[in-house]
Design a protein around this nucleic acid. Structure first.
Length: 733
DNA sequence: GAGCACTGC
């Protein structure tokens, strides 16, 4: 560095606020060595008004030893990553946030996005190796990197933002980083979180001494909280009543009402509209127009945009002002911020994911929210000016009944994927791993059991070559197993498609991806939609139907209306195509054969695909019980029915299913017919009848075995689960 | 003859 360099005299991690402010005010950009633009100074002036700017000195004094808490740009001046070929990472739970914060910070630092400041999310890497020293990324993305480089060598500081949201990825990262800082003394970890959780994290990151804590005041307006006198028996009805009360009696300002799901929201919107029209009809002089806008994630983006429309204007120039009501799921609690909200109506419920390790099922349940969540909801009323929050429960219930925090995701999820990631990142003892909150031992056992049956882990819990390959795929372990097995059944191209389609189609339970189903069914064209679906259905199984839909879509790319004419979501198909390319690249990297058989014998080809599916989904098999359409799941003996969306034209004896959903009844969804012999041939370990629990399924399997006289199933195994069979081009990286 | 809180790789 020459004496002319703006950062001349800066000692790494030993700078003062005066020094930094001097450079910030200066004419030359220390990162690009170009003159600061006029816009830069304008932005800087407004940044200096933020309360945290007055605390810069306090911040830098704290950043010397230990693990700390705060703000990426300050860190960059102190770390000087650009001089050490190390970079600063800042994680976000969501992609949009990673992108938009990176953009803002690039503007503030007067550099172009993707150069000194960039972001990295799935499907998009906006960084320039060697140039980027401040990188925003999703927490899941950093977790992927940790799987390949457990020391995270390229980073000098890692900032975990929004840690209070406790996503699975953030929780796992905190565990890995706590161990890592003991090895890498030069690595700094900064955890940013809402105040309520700060002490918990501080305690967790106490290694020799407590991690320093740094408090930054927020910048919101006061929100007045109101409670009901008595509990409300019907929260939807109470919510509608409250919205109308606000509209009639409160000053102008938009309303945000939190409900739990699509159906409830659409229903409430209809009722609010009817009652608002009634109010107006009764009193045109004092009640203004009201528009009600639904908001949930499966709405097409265009309709989501409606929440930013202005409130309706008064009917006459001097008439009563109009008002906008947004009726939303939790999406408006964290993911989307809507300015201009002055009133929040909070009935105190949301749908929350739960995992039952006993029957291995994830389900959604309407549950009371936590205090932290209630606070977050109230805060939505004070973003632009002082607001009011109407809680539809009593103050006593708030104090006594609500939990402090929402249970972190790690306590409510199936951990099969997470366990594989942890093992790949080098964690040896999963039960004694230092979790912020440790999951139930039974949940860990279920995950280990599945991974062992899939031959991803050996009996001692060590990662196998198979497991190592499986961990490379951003998929559930069952799916990656099928992909890796597919070349032996001459169908990797087809399985790639099915897996890509599944990862954008599946709804909840086994693996929750909030993408609308590929099948569209507009309310007024249900019959037409069902007919269109029937034409694309393959009767052997829903998996093959998905393959067929994707292939037909590819064959008809020249027809821009094909998806629309067939009542299929073009958005989901485009997304499947994107996922498919990513998986294909991983297959190529791992040198897994990309094979396909010609379609001259389609029946045989379909048979092979179904056999490949068995290699990953042998634990998700059901057997028909009686003539009433009831099925029993293998091993767990749960009574289930085929989901009405299922395209099978008969009720086969044995089926394999993608997911088990617990809604009005227990259903299995995305179902394919299989032959019981395949279970005995392909997965002899699991279907070893000696260790199989007694029950109807075992008796059925025994009958089959008896018929196959003299045939030892293990002797004909094609894919065993002990991972000892010779494999072509397996790389055990 | 059903239904889908929200993210992420």
């Amino acid at each position: 560095m020459t004496s002319k360099h703006p950062l001349f005299g800066f000692l790494p991690r030993n700078v003062s606020a005066t020094q930094v402010q001097g450079v910030m005010e200066g004419d030359e950009n220390p990162f690009t060595r170009l003159p600061h633009s006029p816009q830069y100074h304008k932005i800087l002036e407004s940044r200096k008004k933020l309360p945290v700017f007055t605390q810069m000195d306090e911040f830098y004094k704290m950043v010397a030893p230990g693990i700390k808490a705060i703000i990426p740009q300050f860190v960059v001046y102190s770390d000087m990553p650009q001089t050490k070929k190390k970079i600063v990472a800042c994680t976000q739970p969501r992609r949009v946030a990673a992108m938009s914060v990176a953009k803002r910070v690039a503007d503030e630092m007067d550099v172009s996005l993707g150069k000194q400041v960039g972001y990295s999310i799935r499907f998009e890497d906006m960084t320039e190796p060697g140039t980027t020293f401040l990188k925003y990324m999703t927490d899941g993305m950093l977790l992927r990197e940790a799987m390949h480089d457990p020391d995270l060598e390229r980073y000098s500081t890692i900032i975990l933002d929004e840690a209070h949201e406790r996503t699975l990825a953030t929780d796992i990262l905190m565990g890995l980083l706590k161990t890592l800082v003991k090895r890498r003394k030069d690595l700094k970890i900064i955890v940013m979180s809402a105040t309520l959780d700060a002490l918990k994290f501080q305690k967790y990151f106490t290694i020799n001494e407590p991690a320093p804590l740094f408090k930054v005041p927020g910048r919101t307006h006061p929100v007045e909280i109101f409670y009901t006198q008595d509990p409300e028996p019907d929260y939807v009805e109470a919510a509608i009543r409250t919205v109308l009360m606000i509209h009639r009696a409160e000053d102008p300002g938009d309303i945000l009402l939190f409900l739990t799901g699509e159906e409830e929201i659409e229903d409430a919107c209809r009722k609010i509209k009817i009652e608002a029209d009634d109010l107006v009809a009764q009193d045109r002089e004092s009640v203004g127009p009201l528009t009600c806008i639904p908001l949930y994630s499966s709405l097409p983006p265009q309709q989501q945009q409606r929440i930013f429309d202005p409130a309706p204007p008064p009917r006459t120039p001097d008439g009563p002002p109009g008002r906008k009501v947004i009726v939303s799921t939790n999406i408006a609690e964290t993911s989307l911020t809507i300015d201009g909200i002055v009133y929040v109506v909070d009935p105190g419920f949301s749908k929350q994911k739960l995992y039952n390790p006993r029957i291995r099922v994830e389900s959604l349940l309407v549950s009371p929210i936590s205090k932290a969540s209630a606070q977050q909801r109230a805060g939505r009323a004070g973003r632009t000016r002082p607001g009011k929050c109407f809680r539809l429960y009593t103050e006593k219930d708030f104090m006594k009944e609500l939990e402090e925090q929402t249970h972190p995701e790690i306590l409510r999820s199936n951990l099969a994927n997470t366990v594989l990631e942890l093992v790949k990142a080098g964690v040896k003892d999963l039960v004694r791993f230092d979790y912020v909150d440790a999951p139930a031992p039974e949940t860990l056992m279920r995950a280990l059991e599945l991974l062992n049956y899939l031959a991803a882990l050996d009996d001692e819990g060590n990662l196998t070559a198979m497991g190592s390959m499986m961990s490379e795929f951003p998929l559930d372990p069952q799916m990656s197993k099928v992909l890796i097995a597919s070349p032996e059944f001459y169908c990797s191209q087809e399985v790639l498609t099915i897996v890509a389609m599944l990862s954008v189609t599946i709804g909840l339970t086994m693996s929750p991806h909030a993408v609308p189903n590929i099948w569209l069914r507009p309310n007024n064209q249900r019959k037409e939609a069902d007919t269109a679906k029937q034409l694309l259905t393959v009767p052997d199984g829903d998996h093959l139907t998905l393959l067929n839909v994707f292939n037909e879509y590819q064959n008809n790319l020249q027809d821009r209306n094909w998806a629309w004419n067939n009542y299929i979501s073009a958005r989901s198909l485009a997304q499947a195509d994107n996922v498919r390319s990513q998986l294909l690249r991983i297959m190529e990297r791992l040198e897994i054969d990309l094979v396909t058989k010609s379609y001259t014998d389609q029946a045989r080809h379909y048979l092979n695909i179904r056999r490949a599916l068995v290699c990953g989904y042998f634990m998700q098999v059901a057997h028909k019980e009686g003539e009433k359409g009831a099925y029993l799941t293998v091993k767990d003996n749960q009574v289930v029915s085929l989901h009405p969306s299922c395209g099978l034209d008969t009720q086969p004896e044995w089926v394999l299913f993608n997911e088990f959903v617990l809604t009005t009844r227990p259903y299995i969804r995305t179902v394919t017919e299989i032959r019981v012999e395949w279970l005995l041939e392909l997965t002899a370990n699991y279907y070893d009848l000696q260790s199989f629990p007694d029950g109807e399924t075992k008796r059925a399997l025994q009958r089959v075995l008896k018929k196959q006289t003299g045939k030892n199933p293990k002797a004909v195994a094609l894919v065993t689960s002990d991972d000892k069979r010779p494999k072509k081009k397996v790389k055990a990286s």
